[in-house]
């Protein structure tokens, strides 16, 4: 390969540090972009299930739109999950979101030790 002839033109003491810092800066930029757009690293740092904060964000984001969500039209799937009912909601933008309906805890239910 004749690429080696570049070192007849570019001094290695200049070219090699330049090459290595370009790779380092590029790699740093990619890491920055990925970590600023994802949240599974934050989940990892606080010990949560990876991707869980994305799901809960999707559910809360759906808050205001939830009222206008067409709940009745969708065949809701009911599954009891820790005492709550899980309802599949069809969002206006076509995505589905899980809503957990939990019966409110009234003071009488709470047993004081």
């Amino acid at each position: 390969m004749n690429n080696a002839k570049m070192w007849l033109v570019v001094k290695p003491t200049v070219g090699i540090p330049l090459f290595l810092s370009a790779v380092a800066i590029g790699s740093f930029a990619v890491h920055l972009a990925v970590l600023s757009k994802t949240n599974w690293y934050e989940d990892y740092l606080v010990g949560q299930e990876l991707g869980s904060s994305a799901q809960s964000a999707a559910l809360t984001e759906g808050g205001p739109a939830l009222a206008s969500a067409d709940v009745t039209a969708t065949p809701a799937t009911f599954a009891t999950e820790a005492g709550g009912q899980v309802v599949l909601v069809l969002m206006p933008d076509g995505t589905t979101a899980k809503a957990i309906l939990q019966t409110p805890v009234s003071l009488t239910d709470v047993q004081y030790r």
Binding site: M1, A4, M6, W7, L8, V9, P12, I16
Partner: peptide
Amino acid sequence: KVWPTGLTLKEAEEVHSYI
């Protein structure tokens, strides 16, 4: 030696192989 860097082709190929 080849200028401007003054390396010989053999040296240039050696450096390039490390890279």
